[in-house]
Design a binder for these strands. Structure first.
Length: 373
RNA sequence: GGGCCCCCUUCGACUAGAG
């Protein structure tokens, strides 16, 4: 049985949820471990609803199951759910507390994160790192630094967490770099984060320097470096990096497809898309955008309808494709059929109306928007 | 009698949509 448990987990880690589920059903009498593994598998692959279903259907649950489900809600940004479950939990361990702490931190709520942090019965490295990341994410540089100095367990990971948080918080580009250069040593994650940051500024030389200084360059690091050239619009550079990569994955291929779409080399994009071993929502969405730009709405629709899964982003892309090519009614209809809508989707619809001359409707939409930027 | 480890939970860095 525990070999099968391991197999379920293995498939889940590869993102093959269906395979994982099939193996689960092969297990003769699934034990609590098996159920927990399945629960986590769904949660970590973004299927919160299915995870909740599994949680409800489990024959028994333990602290691990509860931690897994609150973590899933935290990942989906449903803090209320996290909190209500957390408060009703019969026992909690440091992991439960860490989940709550991290949830507040990721929301950018340093005050509540601190409250949780102070209430916790004990702390480990994860707690310390989550707290400094929360500070960094809110731009509380001084507090982050102060806490960093007081962590009893010294680890690069803590520095790395701060750097990454600064990178995520777009207002703190300078701080991220400063922090990075103060680190006692560099790990792959912080270096990659800095390379990504430099890609946004077109800091080609500096990015290359950081990249060259890395001890071990994995695919993720290479992908980040590839993006630097892509974002700087440097064709030969991008192609040279792409071809010298020791390993490529779906992110590398998707980045190149994106590059070609953005630069109007749609034939190259198409060739790349067709020659690549697998497609996902990223590459399909890029192709939808690409087809729309060259006026081939039918092909865009074909990609959209054949996608393995779709999300807000791909729905917005296909709706925008219709709108840009003059099919405003269809675009609006697509908007209505979307399962969820974010600011970008709303803005898309808003401009569609505005450009169709429907100013009153546009104004109404603006007032209806749940959030604005 | 007690502790630790064993198959599960906190898990970090890279790609897509409107303006």
């Amino acid at each position: 049985r525990y070999l099968l448990n391991l197999l379920v987990e293995m498939y889940a880690d590869c993102g093959s949820i269906d395979a994982a589920t099939q193996v689960f059903f092969l297990i003769d009498r699934p034990n609590l471990f098996s159920w927990n593994i399945l629960l986590t598998a769904y949660a970590q692959n973004g299927h919160l609803d299915r995870a909740a279903e599994i949680f409800a259907r489990m024959p028994e649950r333990n602290l691990v199951s509860l931690n897994a489900i609150i973590s899933a809600y935290a990942q989906a940004g449903q803090i209320h759910k996290v909190l209500s479950l957390f408060t009703t939990m019969p026992q909690k361990d440091i992991i439960s507390w860490n989940v709550l702490l991290k949830a507040y931190g990721e929301q950018g709520n340093a005050a509540l994160a601190k409250e949780v942090f102070d209430k916790m019965p004990e702390w480990d490295l994860v707690s310390w790192n989550a707290m400094i990341a929360a500070y960094a994410l809110c731009g509380h540089i001084g507090k982050a630094r102060a806490l960093l100095g007081r962590i009893p367990i010294r680890s690069v990971l803590s520095w790395s967490c701060i750097v990454q948080a600064f990178v995520q918080h777009s207002g703190n580009l300078g701080d991220a770099r400063e922090m990075f250069f103060e680190m006692p040593e560099w790990d792959a994650a912080s270096s990659t984060a800095i390379v990504t940051l430099l890609s946004q500024q077109c800091g080609l030389e500096q990015a290359q320097e950081v990249f060259n200084g890395m001890q071990h360059r994995n695919v993720t690091a290479w992908n980040a470096m590839l993006l630097v050239y892509i974002r700087c619009g440097h064709l030969e550079g991008a192609e040279s990096v792409f071809h010298s990569m020791p390993r490529k994955n779906i992110v590398s291929w998707n980045s190149m497809i994106h590059f070609h779409v953005q630069n109007g080399n749609f034939e190259s994009a198409k060739r790349m898309f067709l020659s690549v071993p697998e497609h996902d929502v990223f590459s399909c969405t890029d192709m939808i955008t690409g087809f729309a730009r060259v006026g081939l709405l039918k092909d865009a629709v074909k990609i959209f309808s054949e996608m393995p899964e779709s999300n807000v982003v791909s729905w917005t892309a296909i709706a925008a494709a219709h709108a840009q090519l003059g099919y405003t009614v269809e675009a609006m209809d697509l908007f209505d059929r979307m399962a969820e809508r974010d600011v970008v989707a709303w803005t898309m619809l808003l401009t569609t109306h505005a450009q169709a001359g429907k100013i009153t409707e546009a104004k109404t939409l603006f007032d209806q928007m749940p959030e604005r930027n």
